[in-house]
Structure formats: structure tokens, C-alpha cells
């Protein structure tokens, strides 16, 4: 595992997600209203919808294209039949988002 500092938390408005290119991968990073951060694969496994543009509530994201729904922590589908990849994410003491990649 290696840790990569992505961006200050303020780069993502609360309750939304943004896509980042990280070491050749495209990841969606989410900043929830509760102040938590999550990192997942950027695309919905269904029809490649941009998850970062989805609605986020609690630790759930809804894909904007066809409403597939995923748990951001586990990647498990809550609506749909295929999971998404997740990566450990945290905030460091400078309020920056840090993601661990394998």
C-alpha cells in the first residue's frame, strides 16, 4: 500500500464528489456532509456513469445515469448487481485527503 495526498478537503464541496487522476487510475473522491471522505472507482459498472456526479447521502452514492446505488465504504451495490472498487481514504492533520492505493 502507498498513500497519496490528493487535495485539500476544500477542493470538494460537502455532499459532492470529484474525479481525480491518481497514478494512472481514475478515482472518484467523495466528501460527505458528515465530514467523511471516500475513494472509489470513478465509473459505475453498469454503463460507466460518472459516480462523482451522483447524489450522496450518508455513505451512499446514486449513479446519475440509471440510479444504481452503492455503499461508499464497502463498494457493495444497494441497487444493481455489481460492486464498485473502494480505496481507504482519510484526512490528514492539514485537512488534506489521503488515499491508499495497493
Amino acid at each position: 500500500m502507498r498513500e497519496i495526498t490528493i487535495a485539500p478537503l476544500s477542493a470538494i464541496p460537502a455532499g459532492e464528489g470529484r474525479n481525480f487522476e491518481i497514478a494512472g487510475r481514475k478515482l472518484a473522491i467523495f466528501h460527505t456532509r458528515a465530514g467523511a471522505v471516500f475513494a472509489t472507482g470513478a465509473e459505475c459498472p453498469h454503463r460507466k456513469g460518472p459516480l462523482a456526479d451522483g447524489l450522496v447521502g450518508g455513505s451512499v452514492v446514486i449513479c446519475p445515469l440509471h440510479n444504481w446505488k452503492f455503499d461508499l465504504a464497502s463498494g457493495k451495490p444497494l441497487l444493481g448487481d455489481c460492486p464498485i472498487e473502494t480505496y481507504p481514504a482519510r484526512l490528514n492533520e492539514k485537512q488534506q485527503i489521503v488515499v491508499s492505493l495497493p
Partner: peptide, 14 residues
């Protein structure tokens, strides 16, 4: 617009 509103892909700090 709010932070990074129109960026569909951002690059990382490090």
C-alpha cells in the same frame, strides 16, 4: 461556480 464545478478530472497535489 463553487470549487472545481466544471472539472471532470482533477490532478493530485503529490
Amino acid at each position: 461556480p463553487g470549487p472545481n464545478r466544471f472539472n471532470s478530472l482533477l490532478t493530485v497535489i503529490q
